[in-house]
């Protein structure tokens, strides 16, 4: 069983003439079987944090570890293999292939690991069913609602049976009933497969489905909701 661990991670971006501290000394451990929620206003560095965990970005200082391996310093090839074998990613901009079916969209990333498309489809099918798209295998994204598209993206994250789940606003486009279903699904996946999951969200409902809650503001991480957010949500 592997945990995700961020150790004193700092990531800065240049913006115009100045530097933005997107992530400013964050340490965080996510253990197998738990789904952790990360709140924070827009631009607070949540997505950057997620990209660091996925090996998409390297931190300026500090390190990211998964399963005892430091993934923040992997060469590009190994980093790709890490994402392809170990990580399930759901991003806000889901970049689906507009003319391809839901099934192909979910299956396509398995091709990176040398699987045939036919096999990949077989493997993707149960996941699409599980996110409630069993009746829409052949639909192209254009014919699906935003929520349904989001669910394709979630199915795509799960088809490689990941050992780490990273999701950015997975319920951002869903109504509250569908949101609860998806949140429950993500929680169940983490529990069943005993894998760590990190959930970046705005959705106050997510609190009820996660083990722990953190707030990121100005690049800094705090356990629990901060006062501003609590006020906004009237908590």
């Amino acid at each position: 069983m592997s945990s995700l661990e961020l150790r004193k991670v700092i990531k800065h971006y240049p913006s115009g003439g100045e530097t933005v501290r997107a992530v400013d000394g964050v340490s965080l451990s996510v253990h197998p079987g738990e789904l952790v929620a990360l709140y924070g206003p827009s631009g607070s560095g949540k997505t950057t944090l997620l990209e660091l965990a996925a090996g998409l970005l390297a931190p300026d200082t500090g390190s990211v570890h998964f399963g005892g391996r430091e993934i923040s310093r992997l060469p590009p090839g190994d980093s790709a293999i890490y994402r392809r074998r170990d990580v399930g990613l759901v991003f806000q901009a889901f970049h689906l292939i507009s003319g391809a079916s839901a099934l192909d969209n979910a299956a396509v990333k398995l091709l990176a690991d040398g699987m045939t498309l036919r096999k990949a489809r077989e493997q993707a099918r149960p996941w699409l069913e599980r996110v409630g798209l069993g009746a829409r295998f052949d639909h192209t994204p254009a014919r699906l609602s935003m929520g349904e598209r989001q669910r394709i993206a979630i199915a795509r994250a799960l088809v490689n049976e990941p050992r780490l789940l990273l999701t950015d606003e997975p319920t951002g486009n869903l109504d509250s009933k569908r949101s609860r279903e998806i949140l429950a699904l993500l929680r169940d996946i983490c529990e069943e497969r005993e894998i760590p999951g990190l959930l970046v969200t705005h959705d106050p409902q997510a609190i009820s489905f996660t083990s722990r809650v953190f707030t990121l503001r100005d690049g800094r991480l705090r356990e629990g909701l901060d006062a501003e957010l609590a006020l906004a949500h009237s908590l």
Partner: peptide, 16 residues
């Protein structure tokens, strides 16, 4: 490139 970047985030490498 945007789509390529997203495929890469799912584990495709440049050569593929």
């Amino acid at each position: 490139r945007a789509r390529l970047a997203s495929l890469k985030s799912h584990g495709f490498d440049s050569r593929q």
